[in-house]
Design a protein around this nucleic acid. Structure first.
Lengths: 129, 129
DNA sequence: TGCTTAGTTGCGCATAGACGCATATATAAT
DNA sequence: ATTATATATGCGTCTATGCGCAACTAAGCA
């Protein structure tokens, strides 16, 4: 069962759960700096968390230049699929703030690609939605 | 999100995950001693774990005489429902042993009720199925 | 009124994990 | 080459948690 308890342990941290939900909602791969600006958590923490999530089989990563894009790895078997549905069913009010931050941050993309690093919240402006 | 991370943390322990799955599969409430004999874990540990799971909203309990029966509390919202489906989707081979033990143990019931405490595995015989 | 039994709980220990800080790696730009 | 930037990682610390043991509660029975 350790394979499965490991997945649950990975989702038992607030930052990691927020990351997973944000990636599920985004519908596209996100790079670390976009996650940092959306969650307003330190870069080294986000990096550690996504690394752990990848090890647990929850995320996959793709490197492009200096950037590393992460996305949910919902492939093998019903378990992960149903688990993702459960996470996606967490009521919206819990993820509203992160999603609004992400929306603003994604406007900095050009040609669908991330071209800048962490821009901190004061450069992104307050969340209005 | 703490409400949800708490649920994941609760399922991140092997014994607790086994308890949850066993209760989902059983389709009926089980008392602590039946869980102890099925899982072959110390009674005080099982007791602590089900208490934690109840606090996390995963189980409900019902006291009848000296016995306390536990069952999944899959009531409010899609989240728990989908999460239960995910746990139920964990491949059978991981839960086979526990289920076989439970089958044997349930034979000690009379009139659908548990009438004895922990009976240890040597009184239950080896799992044949 | 005790005794037995099913279950719970408090304590101490040992381990695991999350954070902050500093530093390292790797790729690109000048 | 050197510098800047995106991401990763090693280390020390602090907290959380699972376990074993022992004591406790509560319900039934002699």
């Amino acid at each position: 069962m350790e394979e499965y308890t490991h997945v649950f342990k990975t989702l038992s941290d607030p930052t990691r759960l927020r990351i997973f939900r944000l990636l599920l909602d985004a519908g596209k791969e996100l790079c670390v700096c976009e996650l940092v600006d959306s969650l307003e958590e330190p870069q080294y923490n986000v990096s550690k968390h996504v690394t752990a999530m990848r090890a647990a089989g929850l995320l996959k990563s793709r490197k492009e230049g200096r950037w590393v894009y992460y996305s949910p790895r919902v492939a093998d078997g019903e378990f992960l699929e149903l688990l993702s549905l459960a996470v996606a069913a967490i009521p919206e009010r819990h993820v509203k703030h992160d999603r609004a931050k992400l929306r603003k941050r994604l406007k900095l993309r050009e040609g669908g690609k991330c071209l800048t690093g962490v821009r901190k919240e004061h450069l992104l402006g307050k969340v209005s939605s």
